[in-house]
């Protein structure tokens, strides 16, 4: 087992999440808000990996008898390790974060070019 328990990771993730929310809530600079979003994504990832590490995997991933199949066993060859799902999900989140950052920065550059500023409060051209 890891040196510390699940709760530690959850609390750290909660702290990251709260700081991310704080950043989004208080910043006017679009780049800053993007940083806040990245913090929140990281918090979610820490949670996912921690649950993947500590909590029993969902039974839907395979028969219950092969919760932790041995390396080289037939069950392992078919299902892999069911608990890896959390890690896989986190990997997908990282991919999505990369895509999101690229597109968001494209948008920010576009706004900067048209408005000359990246203050989100000033970007009101589409406001009804």
């Amino acid at each position: 087992m890891p040196v510390v328990g699940l709760e530690w990771f959850l609390v750290i993730a909660a702290f990251l999440f709260a700081t991310g929310v704080f950043t989004i809530l208080t910043r006017k600079n679009a780049v800053s808000i993007l940083m806040g979003v990245e913090l929140i994504l990281n918090a979610a990832n820490v949670n996912l990996v921690a649950f993947s590490r500590f909590v029993k995997p969902a039974a839907t991933l395979g028969p219950q008898s092969v919760e932790f199949p041995l390396q080289g066993s037939a069950a392992h060859a078919v299902y892999g390790q069911p608990w890896i799902a959390g890690n896989v999900f986190a990997a997908f989140v990282i991919v999505l974060a990369a895509a999101e950052a690229a597109v968001a920065l494209g948008l920010i550059l576009g706004i900067y070019r048209t408005a000359g500023d990246v203050d989100v409060d000033e970007a009101t051209a589409l406001k009804g």
Binding site: V21, I24, L25, V120, D121, T124, K127, G128
Partner: peptide
């Protein structure tokens, strides 16, 4: 205000 941030704060 029409500011997404304010709405986020309220919904949170």
């Amino acid at each position: 205000t029409g500011r997404v941030r304010t709405y986020l704060a309220w919904s949170l």
